[in-house]
């Protein structure tokens, strides 16, 4: 599974494809304080990214690749929540 949904944190793994967007949207909608862990994520299809942006989701961990992280940080709120 490219996205592993936990109780309040969703962990994105490797390539997250366009098909995940619907589920992600649903999940974010149902969670009061959803948190996203991107540390293992190498690519997100923009459909998912849009959902994250619209939901202004808190990102608790960023990917290690600085360039990729910079792309994501430009789109997502930079709040660094504690794990």
């Amino acid at each position: 599974m490219p996205i592993e949904y936990g109780d309040s944190t969703a962990i994105f793994r490797e390539m997250v494809g366009v098909d995940e967007a619907e589920d992600l949207l649903q999940w974010l909608h149902n969670k009061a304080h959803p948190r996203i862990d991107l540390s293992e994520c190498t690519h997100i299809h923009p459909a998912n990214l849009q959902v994250l942006m619209a939901a202004a989701t808190m990102i608790v961990a960023w990917p290690p690749d600085p360039t990729w992280r910079q792309w994501l940080e430009s789109a997502l709120p930079k709040t660094r929540g504690d794990l």
Binding site: L49, W71, A75
Partner: peptide, 12 residues
């Protein structure tokens, strides 16, 4: 590179 939204976000 950066990513921007073209329009305001509607609610989820």
């Amino acid at each position: 590179g950066r990513i921007l939204a073209r329009e305001p976000w509607p609610n989820l």
